[in-house]
């Protein structure tokens, strides 16, 4: 692919979660997600148990991608912040680094200004972590999945996908 691959380990995830938790506390938001532009969920914090975060991640990434194309049409390289306003809940999305999107879901207990401020700070911290991760991943050999895993998956598929 045209981009560097990225590996996140436990400790990096912990750092990321810590930052998002701090953001949620500071902004009094409901939950926060970190999604990559391909639509994969990286991590989540807050009240997410009632959310289908997998689908949410895919749709948010799609939304961000389409907005990027809109930006290009009006002569902007990218819109770095998106805000969806609802009756009760609102979504604030901001770009983190080059490939991730920080999503904050909040309601009227807080304000967009507060969320935006805290998200901006969090994005700065997260960007530093991602740069560090990028450095590390360049230095380390990258593992791949084993044939054993592929074979195991095939067996499972035969079980599940039966007409």
């Amino acid at each position: 692919m045209s981009e560097d691959s990225l590996i996140l380990y436990e400790e990096e995830i912990k750092q990321i979660e810590k930052i998002i938790s701090k953001l949620l506390k500071g902004a009094e938001a409901k939950c926060g997600l970190l999604v990559d532009k391909d639509g994969h969920l990286i991590t989540r914090q807050g009240f997410t148990h009632s959310l289908d975060t997998t689908a949410l991640a895919a749709l948010l990434a799609g939304s961000f991608a389409s907005t990027k194309e809109i930006a290009k049409l009006v002569g902007e390289p990218e819109f770095s912040v998106l805000f969806h306003q609802g009756k009760k809940d609102h979504i604030h999305m901001s770009l983190v680094g080059e490939r991730s999107i920080l999503v904050v879901i909040f309601d009227d207990r807080t304000t967009i200004g507060m969320v935006r401020l805290c998200a901006k700070e969090a994005a700065t911290d997260l960007t530093k972590i991602f740069e560090q991760i990028k450095e590390n991943s360049k230095a380390s050999a990258q593992p791949s999945i084993s044939g054993e895993f592929a074979d195991g998956a095939q067996d499972k598929l035969d079980d599940i996908f039966q007409d």
């Binding site: 691959s5 990225l6 590996i7 991590t43 593992p143």
Partner: peptide
């Protein structure tokens, strides 16, 4: 993926 030396990302279900 098996033959590739690169894998990556990590969606994490908390």
């Amino acid at each position: 993926a098996k033959n590739s030396n690169k894998n990556q990302r990590k969606p994490v279900t908390a």
